[in-house]
């Protein structure tokens, strides 16, 4: 059974195909509004994440499907000590596809190994979050019309920020990209992520100073310094305001910069930037829904749950 746990589970060709599917959905949403009729998506969220859950649920509803939902660990059998494996086997009996968010790293992998329906990893602790990366990739594609030759700045929490790690590994697969890693010392990219860049001889620079590099960037990917990733409250308070993007800083950036953020934002991007046409983070949210629709379609089709998919580019 095909599941998606890691963005690297999808080949470059498959990513391109998902993007083409998402663009077709955007061009003609009505064509897709009944494709998943009588199909059920189970959203198993054992960690709070309203926006990702809503995105998956909106995606399934827009495909004409239904949703079964567990929105917190305390209201589920996990609170009684049920294993992830047993939960996956049980929910497979009710749903055609599962989207799972879990606080433990590797939980989605365990679910996928035990489920008899496709599992989409909707975030496993600080580890992987492939559908966020799908949202990021569609946004880059729609803003830049290419995945190659880009200077990509990543700013903020690069240590615990799983979306950063996934985006780096996804964009490392394309030619000519360069990474600018902007973070305080305490929140630098882990060495295993840097090793991937070194092995592939992909150029990158590390800096603590956003202003010294902002003018070079095609993309600036901002991240939140997340309280829940720290063991220690003092460290969190000391670092959370390190990198705040303001209209003043944006004056040094290029006119064609795209500012991205996985959201939710706390204060790392000033609200005054929302009206700047370079701000792409709310488009990213919408793109996330379209990519989740494309992914649900792909996995249900591959699992044999859907017999056909609409032809791309067809009229209704």
């Amino acid at each position: 059974m095909r599941s998606v746990i890691d963005i690297l589970d999808l080949s470059k060709e498959e990513l391109q195909d998902l993007i083409a599917r998402a663009e077709d959905i955007i061009a003609d949403p009505e064509k897709y509004q009944d494709v998943c009729r009588h199909k059920k998506l189970a959203t198993l969220f054992f960690e709070p994440s309203t926006r990702t859950r809503l995105s998956f649920e909106a995606a399934m509803y827009e495909l004409g499907g239904n949703v079964l939902s567990v929105s917190s660990a305390s209201s589920s059998s996990a609170a009684k000590g049920e294993s992830v494996a047993d939960t996956a086997k049980t929910v497979s009996c009710y749903a055609d596809i599962i989207a799972m968010r879990h606080p433990k790293e590797g939980a989605a992998y365990v679910a996928a190994k035990n489920a008899s329906v496709p599992v989409i990893n909707a975030g496993d602790g600080g580890h992987l979050h492939p559908t966020q990366t799908l949202a990021d990739l569609l946004t880059i594609w729609r803003e830049k019309k290419r995945f190659t030759g880009l200077t990509i700045g990543l700013c903020g929490d690069l240590k615990f920020g799983r979306t950063v790690h996934s985006l780096i590994s996804a964009m490392s697969r394309y030619e000519g990209n360069r990474f600018v890693l902007i973070s305080p010392d305490e929140l630098k990219v882990p060495s295993y992520v840097k090793n991937v860049l070194k092995e592939k001889e992909i150029p990158y620079v590390q800096t603590g100073d956003l202003m010294s590099v902002i003018g070079d960037l095609d993309i600036l990917y901002m991240t939140r310094v997340q309280r829940e990733r720290f063991f220690n409250e003092e460290d969190y308070l000391r670092l959370k305001d390190s990198y705040i993007l303001t209209p003043d800083k944006m004056k040094s950036a290029r006119e064609d910069l795209s500012v991205m953020h996985p959201l939710p934002r706390v204060n790392e991007i000033s609200v005054a930037i929302d009206d700047d046409r370079r701000a792409c983070y709310f488009k990213q949210v919408l793109n996330g829904k379209y990519m989740r629709m494309a992914l649900i379609l792909k996995l249900l089709y591959e699992a044999g749950s859907l017999k056909t998919l609409p032809k791309k580019g067809d009229s209704v």
Partner: peptide, 27 residues
């Protein structure tokens, strides 16, 4: 934070991720 630390009955599997440096990583 690993699922295998919480769910003790899971098979503990480590995979060779880099033969040169003999680095093993939790599956």
């Amino acid at each position: 934070r690993c699922i295998s630390s919480t769910e003790q009955e899971l098979t503990q599997i480590f995979v060779l991720s880099d033969r040169k440096s003999k680095t093993y990583r939790c599956l």
